[in-house]
Design a protein around this nucleic acid. Structure first.
Lengths: 152, 152
DNA sequence: TGAAATCCCGACAGAAATGGTCGTATACTG
DNA sequence: CAGTATACGACCATTTCTGTCGGGATTTCA
């Protein structure tokens, strides 16, 4: 529960991999899949999704493949997850759509919607660059804390 | 994705309902289920789980039922979700268990584990009392913001 | 121009998680 | 003892997730 799907995981891993190889113009789905031992065809579809959503640029033909459409710092984990798994909501029903099908009194949702927003905020504050591993000076200084506020 | 299961939803709703009826000594699973239109037998099992995990006290026999084991402010949404759906992790694999089965280089997990902790923190900071609806003076003053910090 | 590499995409099958039901046993009340 | 409840295990139905297959389109390069 409250778990990322494997697809989203794969997507994040792939973007991370691409971010770590900026020197190359493009990497094929197969290359990335092999690097992590992910089913190639599955990853291919995921990358296609990410392309359709503007997170990647793709190029067919020999030496083709995928590359980040933007700087790794400008792509958030939230976007990736959203592109792959669609809009997410903590609660099954959300007032957004056709409000709650359960009896009128499904009042628990409103507070949880705030939790939902908070989590989304956290995910939005994480970029692919944050996930990638770059050399860091020993005794590396970590970035400043991010503060997320939650109002009930 | 990243969605609460219906069971967890039901559990939260039920606890909320119990919190809103402190005058009664106990409410039966059926009463709560009827109040929300939830399948009674399913809710029963959920309440049993919550009882086993120490969040509720149960009492069989006539006028029996369930009651909060503690003050509503002392029961967090996290506990409820955890009791119902088991430990949750954002990532499929977690170094906790038997580390990642994927190729060694599943390094994305470490940053995500922090996200996981942050979300858990948010959930822990929400109590059943927060979910319940109590009369509030018009122009009600909401509680102070909660700040959650995320370090990458 | 043709072969190879690569992306694109819809359909589908197997597996797993989830939601929900049933039946029975057990405990408490009056 | 009869009625009301909880306790619990087995089971099934449905949905969601993962992964595969097959055919088609695009680009490169010899």
């Amino acid at each position: 529960m409250l778990k990322l799907t494997k697809k989203a995981d794969y997507g994040l891993m792939a973007l991370k991999y691409l971010a770590e190889h900026p020197e190359t113009t493009a990497l094929s789905a197969k290359e990335v899949a092999d690097a992590y031992g992910i089913p190639a065809q599955l990853l291919a579809k995921i990358l296609q999704l990410l392309t359709k959503n503007g997170l990647l640029r793709s190029h067919a033909g020999m030496n083709g493949g995928y590359a980040l459409a933007r700087d790794a710092r400008e792509i958030s984990a939230y976007e990736v997850i959203h592109a792959i798994d669609g809009p997410f909501f903590i609660t099954s029903c959300t007032k957004g759509a056709k409000s709650c099908e359960l009896t009128p009194s499904c009042t628990i949702k409103e507070p949880l919607a705030r939790v939902n927003d908070t989590i989304a905020g956290v995910l939005k504050s994480i970029s692919i660059h944050d996930l990638a591993e770059f050399e860091q000076p020993v005794g590396r200084a970590r970035e400043a804390n991010r503060l997320v506020s939650l109002t009930l």
